[in-house]
Design a protein around this nucleic acid. Sequence first.
DNA 1: ATAATCCCTATTGTATTAGTAGAGTATACC
DNA 2: GGTATACTCTACTAATACAATAGGGATTAT
Lengths: 146, 146
Amino acid sequence: MKITYKGDYALKTILDLARHYGNSPVTIHDLAKRADIPIKFLEQILLDLKRGGFVESRRGKVGGYLLAKEPSGIKLGEVIRFIEGPIEPIACVSKNYQGCNSIYNCVLREVWQWVNKATCGIIDNITFEDLLKKIEDSDCTISYQI
Amino acid sequence: MKITYKGDYALKTILDLARHYGNSPVTIHDLAKRADIPIKFLEQILLDLKRGGFVESRRGKVGGYLLAKEPSGIKLGEVIRFIEGPIEPIACVSKNYQGCNSIYNCVLREVWQWVNKATCGIIDNITFEDLLKKIEDSDCTISYQI
DNA sequence: ATAATCCCTATTGTATTAGTAGAGTATACC
DNA sequence: GGTATACTCTACTAATACAATAGGGATTAT
Ligand code: FES
Ligand code: FES
């Protein structure tokens, strides 16, 4: 798996929205500023995230973005897969792959399947609520500021 | 981590050479044919692998390529890192990274560090001898052919 | 000599990535 | 109703990486 800027930005944005879950909408301006994301790039990302059902938006004055579900209902893996596509290290890992030309090389495939499984085991078992909890528990809480 | 064609080809080629370890050199023609790799692309890859100290070559007639070390002395991770560069999913995972602008986002960094650790735990603990053993043990041995 | 082999650099076509640009639409508030 | 403040959408672009391809050159067994 490789995380692109777009994916990184998407996760940071959702995390920010998770921190403000239950409150009034957050403007793209604030989101962009806090995570240091080019605003026009973030625009596209938020559009994507909306289509993916991760965020909602309110237009007009006092508008902004909101998380569409509870932080506990969004797993890291979902967002990553939606934004980045398949996460496996190489295409032949997927179930319905035809197999390579030589059975001797397929031992490599098995290795990639392990790697894939290990990765999924992590990102599919972490929700944004878990991340929020981690932030709270950390000793960084002192420098908290919106 | 994402495996490119180049990396995939490199691993398959070293595995092939591992299977012929201790015998006479294997020609690029045979390597390319068995793994279905464009021969001119493989040329470059073998040049790289030579510079990396993974393979040796004999020029002229009856020349070819040989593994430079025992299969048990080459880990998957070494080859991957040499061919593909850093394997971490995102740059900020590396030790001496400055840290992002917001401590709230750094919980993500920790996730990537887990993913990275899990991946390294796999690829840095598998040698090409392990792969050879895996091939022997598998029931595919029947259709063995050089 | 010659055929088979490896050695090396340069170039190319395509796709992906990380933005930028610029127009449009909705809403709160006076 | 006008206007400022927000979100919406499509198109474009510069830079880079990827996956080869091309074309010569050097070495060695026979
Ligand atoms: S199927 Fe990918 S290496 Fe055999
Ligand atoms: S350092 Fe990468 S997310 Fe904070």
